[in-house]
Structure formats: structure tokens, C-alpha cells
Design a protein around this nucleic acid. Structure first.
Length: 728
DNA sequence: GACCTGCTGCGGAGTG
């Protein structure tokens, strides 16, 4: 049925592929895309042919004899563009349509040719599109004036992120240069939790539809518990031995949540394999491993059908790039989000009829509890809700500079109007935009010439810098080399000294010398070393995960997926909370009374805990406290009678926090380090960015208002506010 | 107790 709707050359392509049938998502996409000019989100599991689902109908529909680029494909990764280029080019040979890669590592000659004769399909990254707007705005209109379709791959990776707001703004600006003032958008993804958000992303929620294939693969899951021997130490040997036994004969991906631990696992498993005569295909894969080394690992995994292998990796192997069939996925300690767990699980079982396995290791009781909570929520189909910023002042600042550069200056009123008309910034009031522009004029990033604003002297440095095109920050790093070969890149931490040993790319190295000027570290092979240290902020855990953890502690549910040691660890943890009778885990929170102190377990998300820490530091009469993210607990030097009063005080601060935020941001500008362009905003906007993206004071006030405290040694529950009234 | 992502234009040397 759907097949017959395709153009003849495309039908020939499908026949030549010898596919038995079209996949469900392909059949649905063909019917819908050919019938309407609406936007579509195509959601179905990895390796289900989404690229073809989009391109078969689009190529059948679009008239490529017209001049101009007709289809633009946008990807979050260069590697994905290179992957997709081959597939799309194969398909386009049947139509004699030109396909051009346009990213930082693509051929300049090809780009130049395309500008001279704009046609066909272009594959691009958001940053390259940004660069084109800034450096060659005439090319943007020359290439894209006749644009008919924009395909966004892995669209979930943009949703709810700064990079997503950036891309949304670029799409809005792109629409403005097309003759038709619009194009259709097709978004592709395997993991979308929030379809409304995906629809809004296209800029036209009302004419965006979702085509969804829910089919998924069953995984054989088991939890395994090996308690860490020392705090902050490496993994216990018993875990590594078990891990080796479980994985030595399979094709495996191991996700240990950090680059350092990925190295430890790859090196230690290789050492065990050496001793017992196992295979030697142990790799590590993360951002600090050299790109060529990573490509070799990906290539090996993809083209190797029979041999077992093991890759210890971070989120570099979560997205899109096809690495062939994986039989087992191992997660060491809890994944930071359910969205991430879904992507990781999705890396295995790409072939039909293959049984795949998920192994969840834990080294600490709380991590086991969190891991179990995440897995149960994943099974329930829960994905963290996305919070797209409604006041992204920092991204507006970036796009304001980019727009002024694009237009070579423009009247201030027109700039304000353009930014307001941009779908990414429609929720920002023009008065706020004017305030941001005033600040840019004040610091010399913009200048006023007559009626127009242009890029200022200081601004030229910013806009001309290589770092301008992206909205995310990166840490400076040193190249690690051995005998002329680059192994990877690491930040210069105190650990990096001559004669120190470190692990990188699944090997052990001794540092020979450090060339500060050239930013290079020369190393030689060694036999023993420490894991590399990387600097990073903390993770953000959703409140729903913490509530699930509390439910697991309060209700004696059975989980056959847990091994004996895990069962025992869970039993012990439940025992610690046996003194509390919690009937309403949505609102009740336990407070342990011991040794003249209180331990308040908030069981809420990182943002609210973070806000509570901030509010505690605002108090006029300081309270001694210690906060732990692992078990979401606050240890307070208070008596039970004092707690309700404190809580009410914090709630009042949370409702009217602005003054405190302003003081904090002036005293400690580092608070805004998470926002690349935040430092140049007016202080009011800086506070707005902090409030919306780092803290959650509204949620905190809500939490403080509605939570019922259950003390371990008091007979009955007391509400925060009740308690406060009693205290008065 | 984190992880990831991308990048222009120019000059000059080397190559065909």
C-alpha cells in the first residue's frame, strides 16, 4: 500500500534493498508525509529504519529540479552525519540528487561548490548553521530560500536543553529567509518522554503530529550487589571478578557513570583476561579518548560479528552511532536519569530474535535503591519531564549578537521585534530584551551608530572567536601522546605530574614530561596506575526517582530480579526505616532523631535540595547542617521542636528569594558557570536564569508547605505549618 | 556523584 505511493526511482531503491516489507514506522510515515505538509515526530525504537521512514516519502515528494537546497538534515553529532551520509547518498543515487555534508570537518571544496550551485540535500550541525548565519549570511539565503523540509535526527537530545533552544532559534531565523516563510519539520527519536515538548520544538505545535511505534524489546534483567570496601575507592575486586565472569564470552557495553571508572574497568578486566587466557578486546570509549581511537573501537564493534568484546564507556555510546549488535548492557551504580537508562538499554538487542541482558551492579545500598527505583520507573514507562526554559536570557543574548552580525547592524527596535518574533524567545518580554541590549551596549559588545546598533569593538572579539558558535562550555585539555600517536585529551589536574601513572584508552601510562606551552603530555606504557581525575559538577536526580525510593523503603515489595546480596542490602536499609510508619509517601518525610541532632530525609529532587541548601545559607541566625545528595538527607543541629519553625522560615525565604539571589550572584559570579553567556547579562536576568535553571524555589516552597514530618521518636506526624503554629 | 555535543578564516608550506 504505502510502497505504491512512492515515486518510481524510490520504489526501485526499496526493491534493490530486498527488504521483506516496510517497517511500521516507515509505512505510516510514507502515508502521512505524502498526504500532508504537516510536521511530524517519528518515534520508534533504535534500528527501526527511521531515517528511511523520513527520506523515502520526502524524496518522493520534493521536486529537486528546482534550484536551491530543498532538504536540510540536522544532527547533534558529526559522527552521525558521516554515518547517515552514506545511507542517504545511496538512496539519492536513484534520483541523481546531490548530498552535501556541511560540518567543521567536512570538505571546504564541497561547501564552496554548493554555494556556487545550491541544490539537493544538506547534512549539517546546529553550530555550523550558526557559523553560516554569522560569517556568510548571503550563503544562508542563497542556499535555503527554497527549503521545503528540515529533518532533525535524535530530536530528544535537543529537547529541554540549551542547545535545543539554540537550534529552535536557528530554525526560526531560517524560516525567515525562505521565500515561503516556512518549511515542514520531521523529527526522529527513539526516546521521547514528553511529546508535547517535541511538538512545541518545531515552532508550530498545532500542525505537528506524532507517529509512534511502541514496540520494544524485552530484557532479561538482574541486580547484583558488591559493597564498596572503602569510601571513594575503586570498585571492589569481587565485583570485577563477577563482572568478568558475566561478560567474558559476550559482546558487552559497560556504563559506569564516569570516565575514570570506565578506564578502571577496561584495564582491570583486561588484566583478568590476561591471567586466565581470555580475549583481549577490551576498550574504553569516552570524550577524553582520542577521536581516531574511538572510531577504531566503533568500527571494530560494528564489523565484528562473532568475536566477543567489551567496551567500558560513558554517554558517548548512548546516542545514534550504529555499533552493531550488543548482547549485554551493564550499568554500574544507578544511572543519573531514566532517559539515559532507556538509551543504554536500547543499545542492545538490535537484531530480531536475540535475547539480550541487562545487568545492574551496585556498590552502595543507596545506589542499589536508586537503581531499582529507576528500573521500576522505566518499566512503568516513566521518563523525567523536561523543563524547557521560558526565560533563556543568556541564549537570547547570544542570538542577539548573532543577528546583529548577520544583518551587519540593524535598528534597535527591529532587533527587539525580531527576537520577540523568534519562537525560541516568544516568552521573553520585549522590556527584558531591551534591558539585555542596554547591558550589551554598556559593556561595548554592541555600539549605537545613529538609529542602528552594530557589533562593538569588544563584541568583535566575542563574535569572531571560534568559541562563539556553540552555547555549551568546554574545559581546556592537554593532548596525551605516545611515540607521535595521540591517545586522548585530559584536563590538567593536580594528579597530572611527571612520573605519575594514569589510565587512558584502556591502557596504563607513565607521564614522561608535560609541555605546558604546547599543551601536550608525553607518556610511555606502564604496568600500574591510577584512574584519571576529571572535574565536573553534580548530577541532577528527578524528584520522582526519590519518591520511588521512599516507596521501596516503606512497602515490603518483592523483587525477584535482585540477587541474594542485593536482597540483603535492601532488607537492611528497610530495617533502618522500620521505626517510621509512612502511609502517604507522596507527602510524609522521615526525620531521624539521634544524639541531639535531626536527620531530615527529604526524598526529593536535586534542584529542591540545592534550593534548600541555598535557603539555609540565607538565615540570619545560622543553623549548623550537613547535606548529603546520595540519600537526600540534611543533618541539622536542632531539637525536634525547633524544626517546624525553621521550615516555615525557609518557606517564607523561598517565596521571596530575589534579594538573596542578587546578593549571592554579586558575591559569587561562579554560580552562573553553567551558562556560557550568563556572565554578560544584567544582574536581574542572571537571577532569573539561576531561578529557572539551577534552583527550583517554587517547588521548594510547595514542598515545605505540603510535607508532613514523621519523627522517629515522636508518637504522631506533625505538619511543618502545624508545628510552626504550635511553636508560636 | 556526571556525562556529552561543535568550530572560521587566514597565511604559508607542500603537492600536482
Amino acid at each position: 500500500m504505502s510502497f505504491d505511493l512512492l515515486a518510481e526511482p524510490i520504489r526501485r531503491y526499496v526493491r534493490d534493498q530486498r527488504w521483506e516489507s516496510l517497517r511500521p514506522i516507515q509505512a505510516a510515515a510514507i502515508q502521512h508525509i505524502l498526504a500532508t505538509d504537516d510536521n511530524y515526530i517519528l518515534a520508534s525504537r533504535t534500528a527501526s529504519g527511521k531515517t528511511e521512514a523520513a527520506f523515502l516519502p520526502i524524496l518522493s515528494k520534493v521536486d529537486f529540479r528546482q534550484p536551491g537546497v530543498r532538504v536540510l538534515y540536522i544532527s547533534p553529532l558529526i559522527a552521525l552525519i558521516n554515518d547517515q551520509f552514506h545511507r542517504i547518498e545511496q538512496l539519492c543515487k536513484y534520483l541523481e540528487v546531490r548530498v552535501t555534508k556541511w560540518h567543521g570537518e567536512a570538505s571546504r571544496a564541497e561547501k564552496k561548490k554548493l554555494v556556487q550551485q545550491p541544490e539537493g540535500i544538506v547534512l549539517i550541525t546546529p553550530e555550523s548553521l550558526e557559523a553560516m548565519f554569522v560569517n556568510a549570511p548571503y550563503s544562508v539565503s542563497a542556499l535555503f530560500a527554497q527549503l521545503q523540509y528540515v529533518v532533525i535526527d535524535e530530536i530528544h537530545s535537543f529537547l529541554g536543553t540549551d542547545r535545543g533552544i539554540h537550534l529552535k532559534s536557528l530554525l526560526s531565523r531560517l524560516e525567515a529567509v525562505t521565500v515561503a516563510r516556512s518549511f515542514a519539520v520531521v523529527g526522529l527519536s527513539a526516546t521521547i518522554g514528553d511529546y508535547a515538548e517535541a511538538k512545541r520544538f518545531t515552532g508550530h505545535e498545532d500542525r505537528t503530529k506524532v507517529l509512534l511505534d511502541r514496540a520494544s524489546k524485552e530484557m532479561l534483567t538482574s541486580f547484583r550487589y558488591f559493597p564498596a570496601t572503602e569510601a571513594g575507592g575503586d570498585l571492589p575486586l569481587s565485583l570485577l571478578k563477577d563482572l568478568y565472569k558475566q561478560t567474558s564470552n559476550s559482546k558487552v557495553l559497560i556504563f559506569p557513570n564516569s570516565r575514570g571508572l570506565a578506564e578502571v574497568i577496561a584495564v582491570k578486566l583486561r588484566q583478568i583476561a590476561d591471567r586466565v587466557g581470555g580475549h583481549d578486546k577490551y576498550f574504553s570509549h569516552h570524550s577524553s579518548v582520542d577521536k581516531e581511537v574511538r572510531e577504531y573501537v566503533e568500527h571494530f564493534a560494528k564489523h565484528n560479528q562473532r568475536q566477543p568484546f567489551c567496551i567500558a564507556c560513558t554517554s558517548t555510546l548512548e546516542l545514534g552511532i550504529d555499533i552493531g549488535s550488543v548482547e549485554k548492557v551493564v550499568q554500574v551504580d544507578a544511572a543519573h536519569s531514566i532517559a539515559s537508562l532507556i538509551q543504554r538499554v536500547g543499545r542492545s538487542g538490535r537484531r530480531d530474535g536475540e535475547q539480550s541482558q541487562l545487568l545492574l551492579y551496585a556498590t552502595k545500598p543507596w545506589s542499589l535503591l536508586q537503581s531499582l527505583a529507576c528500573w521500576l520507573l522505566y518499566r512503568e514507562g516513566f521518563v523525567e519531564p523536561l523543563r524547557t526554559a521560558t526565560q533563556p536570557y543568556d541564549l537570547l543574548l547570544h542570538q542577539a549578537l548573532s543577528t546583529v552580525k548577520q544583518l551587519s547592524g540593524c535598528p534597535e527596535a527591529e532587533l527587539v521585534a525580531r527576537l520577540h518574533a523568534n519562537a525560541a524567545f516568544s516568552t521573553i518580554a520585549p522590556a527584558q530584551t531591551a534591558g539585555i541590549l542596554a547591558e550589551l551596549l554598556r559593556i561595548g559588545w554592541l555600539e549605537r551608530i545613529g538609529q542602528e546598533v552594530i557589533i562593538g569593538v569588544e563584541g568583535e572579539y566575542v563574535v569572531s572567536s571560534r568559541d562563539f558558535y556553540s552555547v555549551f562550555k568546554t574545559e581546556p585539555a592537554f593532548k596525551v601522546q605516545h611515540a607521535g600517536k595521540t591517545i586522548g585529551e585530559i584536563p590538567l589536574t593536580p594528579q597530572v605530574k611527571e612520573n605519575e601513572n594514569l589510565l587512558l584508552a584502556a591502557r596504563i601510562w607513565k607521564i614522561k614530561y608535560i609541555d605546558e606551552k604546547a599543551k601536550k603530555i608525553e607518556v610511555m606504557p606502564a604496568h600500574d596506575g591510577k584512574k584519571p581525575i576529571f572535574l565536573g559538577g553534580g548530577g541532577v536526580v528527578d524528584a520522582r526517582i526519590r519518591t520511588k525510593m521512599l516507596e521501596l523503603l516503606s512497602h515490603p515489595s518483592q523483587h525477584p530480579e535482585l540477587d541474594e546480596a542485593s536482597q540483603e542490602a535492601l532488607r537492611e536499609l528497610r530495617q533502618e526505616f522500620a521505626g517510621f510508619t509512612l502511609s502517604d509517601t507522596a507527602h510524609q518525610r522521615p526525620v531521624l532523631v539521634k544524639e541531639g541532632k535531626l536527620v531530615l530525609f527529604t526524598f526529593t529532587g536535586t534542584r529542591i535540595n540545592r534550593s534548600l541548601v541555598f535557603l539555609l545559607n540565607c538565615l540570619d541566625a545560622p543553623v549548623t547542617y550537613a547535606y548529603q545528595e546520595e540519600d537526600s538527607s540534611f543533618t541539622l543541629a536542632l531539637t525536634p521542636a525547633q524544626l517546624p519553625g525553621l521550615v516555615e522560615q525557609l518557606r517564607l525565604f523561598a517565596i521571596d528569594v530575589y534579594g538573596y539571589l542578587e546578593v549571592a550572584v554579586r558575591e559569587n559570579p561562579g554560580l552562573l558557570d553553567f551558562a556560557k553567556w550568563g556572565a554578560s547579562l544584567p544582574v536581574t536576568c542572571q537571577c532569573g536564569v539561576l531561578k529557572e535553571r539551577y534552583f527550583d524555589f517554587e517547588g521548594t516552597a510547595d514542598f515545605l508547605q505540603n510535607t508532613l514530618l514523621v519523627f522517629s521518636q515522636l508518637p504522631q506526624a506533625a505538619s511543618f505549618t502545624d508545628g510552626f503554629q504550635e511553636g508560636v
